[in-house]
Design a protein around this nucleic acid. Structure first.
Lengths: 106, 106
DNA sequence: TTGACCGGTAGGAAACCTCCTACCTATTGT
DNA sequence: ACAATAGGTAGGAGGTTTCCTACCGGTCAA
């Protein structure tokens, strides 16, 4: 039994590529997604299951195929997590922090 | 030998918490970081190693301790990856896409 | 109804992750 | 010099991931 962990879902390059395909190509069946990978279809199904459990895709049956579609909302959690760091990598704060630390040393 | 995979480094909650501690508390030695976790120190050392290999922390020896500091730059990669999705979770584009897909079906 | 097709589940191998206990080196204070 | 402290490495147990090959049920077309 797995949890719905967005960060864990994004840790795998194949899953990130699946999300990109759904973003760029809109909803599509498994077979069309599978065309882009050098990987058997059942493995793709498992990756799609992980994405589904993380809430990053939704799936609806259409005839004998299943259309998968991107559901980007959970990515907000990642963006929220990231935002307090943004000031650091955009210079400024990191450098300020270093100065403060140096002062502490004395 | 591991690769420097930022996404994989962020997949673990302990490592995300380490980054937060370094962000909020500035550079600090391992022991001070370890105080926040119910986990043996060697395990923490391994998490710090993963973060270091991902470029997310830097380490410098000071006396018999080692000060770890946040290095946020690699997080830019995550932000860059995320940004094409932002329009989707902020409504609009997802809905537009759905309409286009419906039209395709006909 | 029978066959072809879509895609999921079962079960298993191999690699990898995450934790542990020991143990080691380096530095510091007495 | 010796003990105590900081923190890394080694090796291993147990769980999880990621892939595979079978196999199964549901849908469509002849």
């Amino acid at each position: 039994m797995s949890e719905p962990d967005v960060f864990a879902a994004l840790a795998n390059p194949t899953r990130r590529e699946l999300l990109r395909l759904l973003r760029d190509g809109g909803q599509q069946p498994v077979q069309r997604l599978a065309d882009h990978f050098d990987m058997r279809r059942p493995s793709l199904s498992e990756h799609l299951k992980v994405l589904k459990e993380a809430g990053l895709v939704v799936e609806r049956p259409v005839g004998r195929q299943r259309l998968y579609a991107l559901r980007a909302e959970p990515l907000q959690e990642v963006a929220d997590w990231l935002s307090p760091y943004e000031a650091y990598w955009r210079g400024r704060l990191g450098a300020l922090r270093d100065v403060l630390d140096e002062l502490d040393d004395e």
